[in-house]
Design a protein around this nucleic acid. Structure first.
Lengths: 146, 146
DNA sequence: TCCATTTATATCGTGCACGATTCATTTCTT
DNA sequence: AAGAAATGAATCGTGCACGATATAAATGGA
């Protein structure tokens, strides 16, 4: 591809839509999550634990594509709020396993209503959301150096 | 839509792909932008100025969908780096106009190569990227309360 | 075994992002 | 024209996100 073929307007840059849409979603979630006392990254982290409890910090970081330096304090805040416990792995003294408390598990009951509300707000059909999700995963996986 | 119809796995949540893809893009841009001494939000802000110079802080915030409390320090850093100037509007004493310096304008020469590289890395066709962009804008605009 | 390397987490400093608040300026109302 | 309301930036405090660095535990090789 030659430079001449590349869109130069900010609206056309493939990074711009992602950047603004991502923040718009975070903002749209905020009022729902505020009622649960959660931030958006905290909520996403909990969804991973609802799916599979007892993950290590490392596994959570991998799933989210972030550094443990981001997750350690986040998980500590979840612990301080009483949603999870952190304990050293018996098999590997370095690893920390994150486990949901009853309170943390109970929060999962609220999730479907929040998701439903967000899907409704989005104005996109389920088919469009699936198409979007597929493209996002393809983009993300393409960019991962690994 | 009933709750039973809502995907509950984290992978299927429509927020998850956006969250991880957005960070993946930021991370993929980082090495290219580091060579220019810029962060990703700084780069996007500059693209808006390359498109139309002399915008007010408010206009930039609107375009990016962010608060002025985020942009004010960012623009000040761009000023400290010598890429822009900040000056009070003659027509409205409250407003601050952001203008590119010669150095800031010169940076725009590097942008097409960066964009081209990112598009190549993404592994998506231009058609797919346009489709993705369209869905993202639709999502974003659907979520804006306005 | 012993020591080098790797791995898992944590810590620190910088920058982004938001909401709440403040301050100055403009605009609206009367 | 004067006070009220609205607007544009800025400031402050909290939390997210990264890279660089540190520390402790596990692994590997000689």
């Amino acid at each position: 591809m030659k430079h001449a073929d590349i869109p130069t307007r900010a609206d056309d840059l493939f990074c711009y839509g992602l950047y603004t849409a991502s923040h718009a979603v975070t903002r749209a979630y905020a009022p729902h999550l505020k009622a649960l006392g959660l931030t958006y990254p905290q909520y996403i982290t909990l969804t991973l634990l609802w799916e599979e409890d007892g993950r290590q910090v490392n596994a959570l970081a991998q799933k989210l594509g972030m550094e443990t330096s981001t997750l350690t304090p986040l998980v500590k805040r979840l612990e301080a709020m009483g949603h999870v416990t952190r304990s050293k792995s018996a098999l590997d003294g370095r690893a920390v396993e994150v486990r949901l408390t009853d309170a943390g598990k109970a929060l999962s009951q609220q999730a479907p209503a929040v998701t439903a509300c967000m899907i409704g707000q989005s104005g996109l059909s389920v088919a469009e959301l699936e198409e979007l999700q597929a493209l996002l995963f393809k983009l993300r996986d393409g960019l991962q150096p690994r």
